[in-house]
């Protein structure tokens, strides 16, 4: 019998795993954006003195994890499990970070929804008594994603207006069973994969919006809540195109999101930064959460949010073979515990 389960796909965490600490490290472009003041570290050069952008991505993730641990005054050996995800093939950045940390590691892949997937699983492990502390992270880097998914950096090509800009940044959060901390995780909704036949890799928001819509619907149905029960519903990287599609899909079913809904991809960059539809990447939602959103929760500005990043689960190979792009969205409820 499922004790801590609501409806079809929502989990309840009776012990409310707490957020012990969090940190974010971003690249220079993200640092110049409107959320620049909320990040722990803005690296001046996104190669970070490394030999390759892949190594820089790893360094960024390691820095975010180190900062998270030191903020909680913990050592890596004090942490029971590490859950990490990124966009590189075989999720190597997270695996190499785990190599350095030495914490028992589970790699997660939910493309740009990886942060929610890691936190959801971390909360399950902590709430179930399988771990006292769980470190969760997600990272992406513009220059590594660009070469893997698109073209060489120096190739002169134009981007269509629906395209998005991969965020260079790493976010990490430490979850734990300690009581008396202000922010905790109360619910999570595991998303299912949705595919509406979209094939345009330059319009990811359109491919992922249906998944966000379904997960949001399922979450509200399972918990018996309404949009107004949340101060903020936050999607990860739907961008301007995807988030306006999500609004429309919700409105058609009588769900008005209004000012209670934002998208990290629309918030992280300014309109003058040449990113077209907005930011994207696993790091987009991770750094927005581990910078701006957590600080708003801690300041009491927000009391309860639904963190619901989306991911596009295709690969370069499936795209070249003409497959459409499946999308997924996982949701995590973060609450200020009274």
């Amino acid at each position: 019998m499922m004790l801590n389960h609501l409806g079809k796909q929502t989990l309840v965490f009776p012990s409310r795993p707490s957020v012990l600490s969090y940190a974010s490290v971003v690249g220079p472009k993200e640092g110049e954006g409107p959320l620049g003041n909320f990040f722990d570290e803005i690296v001046p050069d996104d190669l970070m003195g490394q030999d390759s952008f892949e190594k820089a991505e790893l360094k960024m993730l390691e820095d975010a994890c180190d900062r998270t641990l030191s903020k909680a005054k913990k050592l890596a050996c004090d942490v029971d499990v590490y859950l990490g995800g990124d966009l590189l093939n075989q999720i190597v950045s997270s695996a190499y970070a785990a190599r350095g940390l030495g914490i028992p590691y589970l790699g997660v892949y939910g493309a740009c929804s990886s942060m929610a997937q890691a936190m959801l699983l971390g909360a399950v492990l902590v709430d179930g008594g399988y771990a006292d502390t769980a470190l969760c992270s997600a990272v992406s880097h513009f220059s590594t994603a660009e070469r893997q998914y698109r073209f060489p950096l120096e190739l002169g090509s134009q981007r269509p207006p629906s395209s998005q800009w991969t965020v260079t940044g790493a976010g990490a959060v430490l979850l734990g069973c300690e009581k008396g901390l202000p922010v905790g995780i109360t619910h999570a909704t595991i998303g299912s994969v949705w595919d509406m036949g979209q094939k345009d890799i330059n319009n990811m928001g359109a491919a992922m919006a249906p998944a966000a819509h379904e997960t949001l619907k399922a979450h509200l149905l399972d918990t018996g809540r309404d949009v107004t029960d949340y101060d903020l519903i936050v999607s990860g990287d739907l961008g301007k195109v995807g988030s306006s599609i999500l609004r429309e899909l919700c409105e058609r079913e009588g769900l008005y999101l209004g000012a209670r809904y934002i998208d990290c991809g629309c918030e992280i960059f300014g309109d003058d930064q040449g990113v077209f539809s907005g930011g994207s990447g696993a790091g987009c939602s991770a750094v927005t959460l581990c910078g701006w959103l957590f600080s708003r929760l801690l300041s009491g500005d927000l009391r309860r949010i639904l963190f619901m990043p989306t991911g596009a689960l295709m690969s370069v190979t499936t795209s070249q073979q003409g497959e459409s792009i499946p999308g997924i969205a996982h949701a995590v409820t973060l609450e200020v515990i009274p």
Binding site: P160, P161, S162, G197, Q198, A206, V241, S277
Partner: peptide, 23 residues
């Protein structure tokens, strides 16, 4: 919602590329 209907929605919500200036 059917794929065709969704395709219409995506078309309506996606910004159009400028034509004259790029040419």
């Amino acid at each position: 919602m059917q794929q065709k209907e969704y395709e219409k929605l995506v078309k309506a919500k996606s910004p159009k590329s400028k034509v004259i200036l790029p040419l």
